[in-house]
Design a protein around this nucleic acid. Structure first.
Length: 375
RNA sequence: GGGGGUGCGCCGGAGUUGGAGAGCCGGGCUAGACUGUAAAUCUAGUGUCUCUGACUGAAUAGGUUCGAGUCCUAUUACCCCCA
């Protein structure tokens, strides 16, 4: 893996960079569409590459391990071959499922005992076997096993959880160093900073992670319900400490405005389910703000989805998309997903352009509030 | 033309053995939520009004009864059978 910062913004910490991974180059800042089970819901690979311009997608170890199962993925020769997605992939370790499936799991020092959400069967995830699973999946970037700390929580809980995540990180790194990649290309391991919304803990966690000296650093445990200002404050505190020469990945963020603000704080990589999930639920992101396409007011609006958007957003009308979504027609979810992902990638490409041109900060200040408007 | 059956919410079901309904379940509709995807999901609302409370309501019009969505009569609509 190679990363180089090409330009930095003079009025913020924003940077434009180039990240070279086993399956290709990635221009940062970048948004990674989420494809939990090895598929970005409702969007085919060609569309993802040619229309949306996705450079890197995210998949999930927990979900792929349960279904189809590691035997299928290994027999296919890894997720790239199984899915035929030949660009970079990042896998999440299942740390988020430790958080989101909390009623069905038990955390111990050794690891996490899970009940499958599919059939209720019992499974055990440890830092070691989660690394193993991700190596077998064959992702370009694999994530350390962590607990995404719930919010709100007590200082004591956050502190204990953070230290356990650190101990798990050590086990991940040592297992990773002692294990060969399955498919002969480079896979890199990324650590995850925790510490909830406690500045002191975030600082400790960042210093711990920096000392591990892995090639890419991630921030987890944010955008789990805390106010946006706290998320920005924690991100700012962390990026202030992180080394400038390594990419920074803010996990699970966020809304378009969140992304612009966090680019300004020095984040290079983002992923979030909002553009795809909200697309299926009828929420569209545009350069003028957010549209709930299910609202009655679009029933007879025959204008395009986004007047300021790229060509894909000018193909279908609001009235037509509303009709498709109202009719529960799968094409509606597909069009909305392509639209939202297209917008997100357009957003980070435009941000990158402004960073390179030296106009990022002014542009961001003007643009971010508008993106949050409700149309 | 003759015989039988059924009519309550925007729709489909269920239920009400003469005794508390603005009221059960689903759908639709109207909104809202969603941030490393247990999520094409979830939540709320969906007769009217002067809205912490009232009023009207079981096809329509009468009748019996302390009390009728339920029983009776007529009308009307739809369905089935016969001609």
């Amino acid at each position: 893996m190679q990363f180089s910062v090409q330009s930095t913004d003079s009025k913020s910490r924003a940077r434009a960079g180039l990240l070279e991974l086993a399956h290709g180059m990635v221009e940062t800042p970048i948004f990674m569409p989420v494809g939990t089970v090895g598929a970005v819901k409702g969007v085919g690979h060609d569309t993802l590459k040619e229309v949306i311009g996705a450079q890197l997608i995210l998949a999930n170890a927990y979900h792929l391990y349960l279904r189809p199962g590691m035997d299928v993925i290994q027999n296919a020769g890894g997720l790239h071959k199984f899915s035929t997605w030949d660009k970079p992939i990042l896998t999440d370790s299942g740390g988020y499922q430790v958080y989101s499936l909390s009623p069905m799991r038990k955390i111990t020092e050794e690891g996490v005992h899970f009940r499958s959400h599919i059939d209720g069967s019992s499974h055990f995830f440890s830092p070691e076997n989660v690394i193993e699973i991700q190596l077998q999946i064959g992702a370009d970037i694999i994530m350390a096993f962590d607990e995404c700390t719930p919010w709100p929580c007590t200082y004591e809980y956050a502190e204990n959880s953070m230290h356990r995540t650190h101990r798990w990180l050590d086990r991940c790194t040592s297992h990773f160093k002692n294990t060969r990649s399955c498919y002969g290309y480079e896979q890199v391991l990324a650590p995850i900073i925790q510490g909830s919304t406690f500045a002191e803990l975030r600082k400790i966690s960042t210093e711990y992670v920096v000392a591990c000296d892995l090639p890419l650093n991630a921030i987890g445990g944010l955008s789990v319900g805390e106010p946006a200002d706290e998320m920005y404050a924690m991100t700012s505190l962390v990026t202030d400490i992180l080394p400038k020469e390594k990419p920074r990945y803010l996990m699970g963020v966020g809304t378009p405005a969140n992304i612009l603000e966090c680019i300004a704080l020095g984040i290079d990589m983002f992923d979030c389910v909002l553009p795809t999930r909200n697309a299926r639920h009828g929420l569209l992101y545009t350069w003028d703000g957010v549209i709930n396409i299910k609202n009655e007011k679009w029933r007879n609006d025959h204008t395009v989805l986004d007047t300021q958007g790229s060509s894909w957003s000018k193909t279908y009308s609001r009235a037509y998309l509303r009709h498709l979504v109202q009719s529960n027609e799968m094409l509606g979810a597909m069009i909305a997903s392509v639209h939202n992902l297209g917008f997100y990638l357009d957003l980070v490409r435009t941000a990158r352009k402004h960073i390179i041109e030296g106009t990022f900060f002014q542009w961001k200040e003007k643009t971010a509030p508008r993106l949050e408007q409700r149309l």
